[in-house]
Design a protein around this nucleic acid. Structure first.
Lengths: 197, 197
DNA sequence: GTCTATATACGGATAGAC
DNA sequence: GTCTATCCGTATATAGAC
């Protein structure tokens, strides 16, 4: 073949990203990724020295994508409440994948924690950037020092919803809880903002 | 040796139970369990035909233990609110293990879901018995048809707390959220019961 | 840069001695 | 009932041809 190395490297990361999400990190073998990309196992080690290096690239990619998504919302919506609602709607917009594979961030962190994998501290940055972004939005809505705690609460609610949707394979539960979570959000900031959802 | 078979079988299940929780199901090998129990790998197959059979035994054991725990609380406490508070306090009482390994039920279901493992439908019964028990308590507190939904909500809140406590390795977050969850519970049933917590 | 072939280790599972 | 020895598949990783 001989396509430019960087392009192939990116294709490997994309395949690994999907497979790690669908099957889990440890359960995904080099063969799985190689088959998906359409290259040989040996070719891998030209681009990555080890499986952990692929994991690292996947985490960095996901982190960048999350940051881009949040920046996009910050630009697209002027109302901080609307921005937070967009964040909650991640659940609704990915309900089918969540039903089958859970949350990509939560499930990866859980797996790495079980394996005492040092890269857990990189993976949980995917939560941290969301926490920090949510904190900013909440402060814009008038919350004070408690904003960060409320942001963590929002993340926890989303994670709980994803976990049970996945365990019971039940999207109805997800939709039900998302509705309640939006109501709760409205109550938290009532009087501070007039835009309903 | 020659100790009675049933006793050894039980010791295998106990070791497997702990190791599946600490390392995950797939990451736990026969060697791991054999070393922990103090027997040879080969001896395994006298007691279990396959790894899935051990998993099945572990799930059944956990399910029985959960049911016994819930029954115990039903006997020990007359106030349904107090019973629910006991359930919430599982988090506090196991905060160190949760920090390191997450929730044993949630993390197992997540792993089985990723592997498309048929035994997910057995594992999620560990959630279902809790949901049903919580529903009974909530109905005793005066809730109507919405009791089941509130029960699922409680489970989801606990799961979210466990997931983020684990991901951030932060027990402070757990304690903070447990406090809020108990407050929320009080608000849900206010006027129906006088016992505070 | 990509391939095939291979080294090496470990997984679950089996056979048969004791 | 428990052991040792072993089969077989697959995993990560490497060497070297092209």
């Amino acid at each position: 073949m001989g396509q430019k190395g960087e392009a192939l490297r990116q294709r490997i990361v994309v395949s690994a990203d999907q497979l790690f999400y669908q099957k889990g990190y440890e359960s995904t073998s080099f063969s799985d990724i190689a088959d998906d990309v359409g290259i040989s196992r040996g070719n891998f080690y030209y681009h990555f020295k080890s499986k952990d290096e692929i994991l690292n690239a996947v985490i960095e990619t996901r982190l960048t994508e999350i940051e881009q998504m949040l920046n996009e919302w910050s630009k697209q919506y002027t109302d901080p409440k609307q921005r937070i609602v967009e964040h909650i709607d991640i659940l609704t917009n990915h309900q089918d994948k969540i039903k089958n594979h859970g949350c990509p961030v939560g499930s990866l962190c859980a797996e790495l924690a079980k394996q005492n994998h040092s890269m857990l501290r990189d993976a949980n940055k995917m939560f941290a950037v969301q926490r920090d972004w949510l904190t900013v939005q909440l402060k814009e809505l008038g919350l004070g020092k408690e904003a960060r705690q409320v942001a963590m609460h929002l993340l926890a609610r989303s994670q709980g919803i994803a976990t049970l949707t996945n365990a019971f394979e039940d999207q109805n539960f997800l939709r039900q809880e998302v509705k309640q979570l939006k109501q709760w959000l409205g109550e938290q900031i009532q009087g501070q903002n007039k835009n309903g959802n």
